[in-house]
Amino acid sequence: MTIPLTTRWVVVDIEGTVTATEQVHVVLYDYARPRLGAWIEEHPDDQEVASAVRQVRELAGLPATAGVDEVVRVLHEWMDADRKAAPLKTLQGLVWQHGYAHGELTIRLFPDAAPALRAWHEAGTHLAVFSSGSVAAQIALFGHTTDGDLTGLFSRYFDTVNAGPKREKPSYDRIAEELGTAPEGIAFLSDVPAELDAAAAAGWRTVGLARPGEPFADADFGPHPTTDSLAHLQVVPQR
C-alpha cells in the first residue's frame, strides 16, 4: 500500500529504518568493542576523548581515578544493554570513523533505502538524520555505504547530544526549531513506536517501518501509518 506524504523535511532514523539492526549491533559493535580501550590509551590529550571518559566515570559512579580497564568494562556493559549513553556513542563514533577512513568498515543499507533517499532529495525534499549514534558516526556511516557516499543527500544531522533523547517530545521541538520549519512540515521515519509517539506529540508527521526480521517488526504502531519499505512512500515536497 502506498503512503502519500507531503512534507518539507524527511527525518530518518538509522538502524531498523534504513539499515538492518545487525549492521550496527554486530558489524559496528564488534568492531568497536576490542578497540575502545586502545583508543582511550592512545589519545590521552584529545579533549573529546577525555571528556567522554570523565562522563563515563560520573555516570557509572566510578572514582575520578578509575583506570581505563574499569571505564572499558562499563562501556562494554552499556553496549550489551544497548544503552544510549552519550559518552559511549562519542567513543564508538571516533573508533568507527577510523575504521571507515581506513577501509575496514562499510555499511549495507536496505535495498530500498538509497534509491528512495536519492529520489526524495532530487525532487526537492530536505533530508535529515536523527539517531542515537553521534553525529560524527552518522556522517561516517552514510559516507561509507555499499551504495556509495550518501552524505550529500542530508542537510542536517541530530543525535542525543544536540537534540535530546529520541523518546521525548522536547527533542523534536528542538529539532523543528533548528530546522526553522513548522512541525507539520516535518516527517519522521522510524521503526520504534515510542519514538514516533514523541514526534507526533510535537506535531510532526510520522511513518513507522515494520521491516521483517527487525526487533519491532511485530510491534503495535498504533495510529502511525506503517510500511515495510521506503519504496511504498510517495513523498511530495511541500512548497
Rank of each mutant, 00 (worst) to 15 (best):
Q23E: 15
A187T: 13
E104N: 08
D191M: 14
V18N: 10
D80Y: 01
D197Y: 08
W204N: 05
A198Q: 06
E122K: 14
F142V: 14
R8M: 03
Y100I: 04
A119N: 05
A64S: 14
P87Y: 02
W39P: 00
G222M: 06
E184F: 04
F221Y: 15
A194V: 12
T19P: 00
L5K: 01
N162V: 08
F158L: 10
F142S: 09
A199M: 05
E214A: 04
A101S: 11
W204C: 07
V18S: 13
L153Y: 03
F216Y: 14
P225T: 04
P223N: 03
V56T: 05
T146S: 15
E104I: 06
M79R: 13
T160E: 06
W96L: 13
V10C: 12
H121A: 14
D191P: 09
G222S: 11
T65R: 05
R8N: 03
R57Q: 07
V236T: 15
T90S: 03
S134G: 09
Y157N: 12
E22H: 15
V56Q: 02
V129T: 12
R205D: 13
A64T: 13
F142K: 07
G99M: 03
W78C: 06
S155G: 15
E48R: 13
Y29N: 13
V56R: 03
G16R: 11
P44N: 08
D112P: 08
S51E: 11
W9A: 09
E48Y: 00
G143L: 05
A163P: 08
H224F: 10
S51L: 10
I175C: 06
H224A: 13
L94G: 10
G124S: 08
F110D: 00
W39L: 15
H43Q: 13
D147K: 01
G93L: 07
D218W: 00
D112G: 07
P34D: 15
R239Y: 00
S132I: 07
H102D: 13
P237L: 12
W120V: 09
A198Y: 06
R83D: 07
R167F: 00
L62F: 07
A116H: 04
G152H: 07
D69G: 09
V71Y: 06
R33Y: 14
E177P: 00
L5D: 02
V236I: 13
K169F: 00
V27T: 15
R35T: 14
E42H: 13
L150K: 02
V10D: 02
D46C: 08
A219Q: 07
V53T: 11
A137G: 09
D46T: 04
L105W: 05
Q55Y: 01
R73T: 15
V27K: 12
Y172L: 03
G61Q: 09
V27G: 01
V68D: 01
P44Q: 07
R211Y: 11
P225A: 07
G203V: 11
V71K: 03
H43E: 11
P111C: 11
Y172W: 01
L117K: 04
D173M: 10
P215Q: 12
F110Q: 06
V135P: 02
A199T: 04
R239H: 13
M79K: 02
